[in-house]
């Protein structure tokens, strides 16, 4: 499979990465290079094979239901590019 410029645009949009028109062509070429490389997998017969869900055969540990965290709003927003009264601020979202 290979991608065209329109697909690369759509993928960039889904990835929320601005790509200039000039870069689109280069990116399309690079992505097709990688997709061509992974195409090798098409020769593997995987019928009846389960996909891997975990490389280690362990069961998931679970937490007890207790409040052990929180009450540190100042730490939470400490690195924020824009915050006010411990809220994060972002350009207005129109719903």
């Amino acid at each position: 499979m290979s991608v065209d410029i329109a697909t690369v645009k759509r993928v960039a949009r889904l990835s929320r990465i601005a790509v200039s028109e000039d870069d689109l062509e280069r990116m399309t070429g690079e992505l097709n290079g990688i997709l061509g490389f992974v195409e090798l997998l098409s020769e593997v017969d995987v019928s009846g094979v389960d996909p891997m869900t975990s490389v280690t055969p362990i069961t998931m540990r679970k937490r007890a239901d207790a409040v052990t965290d929180g009450d540190k709003a100042a730490d939470i927003v400490a690195n924020a590019p824009n915050s006010d009264q411990n809220f994060f601020l972002v350009p207005k979202v129109v719903e």
Binding site: R13, I17, A18, N79, P81, N82, F88, P91
Partner: peptide
């Protein structure tokens, strides 16, 4: 939004795309 680089944009989607680019 919460840390790191932010490049302002005309709206939230624009901010995301410019920051990540």
């Amino acid at each position: 939004v919460r840390y790191g680089l932010r490049v302002d944009g005309k709206d939230i989607a624009d901010m995301y795309e410019k920051s990540r680019a």
